[in-house]
Amino acid sequence: MKNQSVGQILQKIGPLLGLIVIMIGLSIMSPQFLSLDNLLTMLRQVTIVGLLAFGMTFVILTGGIDLSVGSTLALAGALTAGMMASGLDPILAVLLGVLAGAVLGAFNGLVISKGKVAPFIATLATMTMFRGLALVYTEGRPVTGFTDSQFFDLIGRGYLFGIPIPVIIMFVIFFILLFILKKTVFGRHVYALGGNEEASILSGIKVNRVKIGVYSLTGALSALAGIILTSRLGSASPNAGFTYELDAIAAVVLGGTSLSGGRGWIFGTLIGALIIGVLNNGLNLLGVSSNYQQIVKGAVILLAVLLDRQKS
C-alpha cells in the first residue's frame, strides 16, 4: 500500500464502506438482520454468485467478459446430476462436472483468442448454446432423485463447526484465487494483458494461453457453483443460473474492478457479492416485494458507479 494517494486508498475501501453502511442501515430497520443465523444464511446465498463473480473478475481483468457463466452453471449441474443418476461415484461425478465446466470455458477461450472473436459476442453465443445443451440433456425437466450420497448432500447443505460448507468452499477458493492473482506469474500476466495487450505480447507473454486460462478457470468455478446449487436443491434444473451472469458482473463492478481491464482486485469482488447478498437478504427480511427489490439493486449499482466516477 506504499505510494498511494488518498484518492486511491478511498477508491479501494469505498466498496467496504458501502457494505458497512448498508449493513448498519439494515440492522437498524430489522433487528433479525444481525443474528448469526441470518448472517450465515445470507453468506450461503452469496456463494453461488460469489463463485461466478470470482471467475468473472479474472476475465474482466484481462479486458474480457463472460456472459455464459449462468448457462455453464446449469449445464455442469445437470451433467453432474446425470452422471450420478447413471451410477457414477459422486466424488468422481463432481470432479468430472468441474472438468466439464473448465472445458466449456476453454472453448470460450479458444474462440476468443484463436478465433479473435470479441468476448461479448463469443460468450453471448455460447451462453445460448450451453443453455440449449442443458435443456437438451435434461429434456427440459429438472433432474431429481439422482443420489443418496452423503458426500454430495454435504456440498450444498452441510455444516462444519456451525458454518455452512458452501461458505467454507467459497472462502477457500477466494484465498486460492487471491494468491494466484497476487503471487503468481499467471496473475501478473492477467493484469498485464488487461492493461495493454500489445505491450504484453511484445514482452513475451503468451496472451492466448492466458486468455484460455482465465475462461477455463471461470468455467470451472461456474460448474462448481452449479454443483453446490444442485446439492442444495436436490435437483438440477436446466433453467438454473438464469441471468446470474449479470449479478456476477455487477458484483465485480461494485467491487471497483474496471470493465476496461487491467485494474481491480478480487477482494473488491467479494465485497461486491456481499453487497448484493446483503441487499437481497435485508430487503426480504423487510418484506419488500421482489419487484421493488430489483429497482433497489439496480439503483445501488448505479449509485456505486456514479460515486466511483466522482472520485476519478
Binding site: 493484469y191 505491450a199 511484445l202
Partner: peptide, 12 residues
C-alpha cells in the same frame, strides 16, 4: 501503446 502497461507500477 507498445512498451508499457500504463496501469501497472514501475516495478511490475
Amino acid at each position: 501503446e507498445q512498451g508499457l502497461v500504463l496501469s501497472m507500477s514501475v516495478k511490475e
